[in-house]
Amino acid sequence: MMSGIEVTADTRVARSRAERHLPGEEGVWVFIMGDMVVFALFFAVFVWYRGLDPVLFSESQATLNAGYGLFNTCLLLTSSWFVVLAMNAVRRDLDRQAALLFVLALLCGLGFSLIKVLEYSEKIAADLTPLSNDFYMFYYILTGLHFVHVIIGMVVMLFMALLARRGVSRSGGLSFLEGGASYWHMVDLLWIVLFPLIYLMK
């Protein structure tokens, strides 16, 4: 190896740390922040309605299994971590590792989905539907809307894995990966709020 100054992957990573860098294109952040505002509205309405009938909400909450919620939260946290590691691998041109990590993140999402389906079917079997009471209305609609986001995210993640495996060009491909990663972190972030709101708050 020649001595002297070489631009290595680490230097590139270090450089992108020093300058301010927008992950993904700006439009993605229009969508992400807009989505977060919509969910914030849903959160606020939920807490408001809870205040109108805290006893009903507490009693209904008790029929939920917070263990499912805990496990799901950890699954999403882990999947987000995998995505961060994957992006690191992409920036170090470790294509196959990146693709593998994206797939792992997707599998976490799949696990989340399975538990969600399991949870819904348990509740429906116990005759607890969105029309049972206000708590259950919010439970199904809030987690359902989030679930739709998870499913979309998993589809995006699949494309990200395929793109990473092919090797990403510096320009457009990296931007798509960053955007997709940011979207997935948002999905994680929203569930971090949903978990205590629905399963834990007293």
Partner: peptide, 12 residues
């Protein structure tokens, strides 16, 4: 390009 994302957000 951000107009696309406004459209996606409205769909949501």
């Amino acid at each position: 390009r951000w107009v696309a994302y406004v459209n996606f957000w409205m769909a949501l």
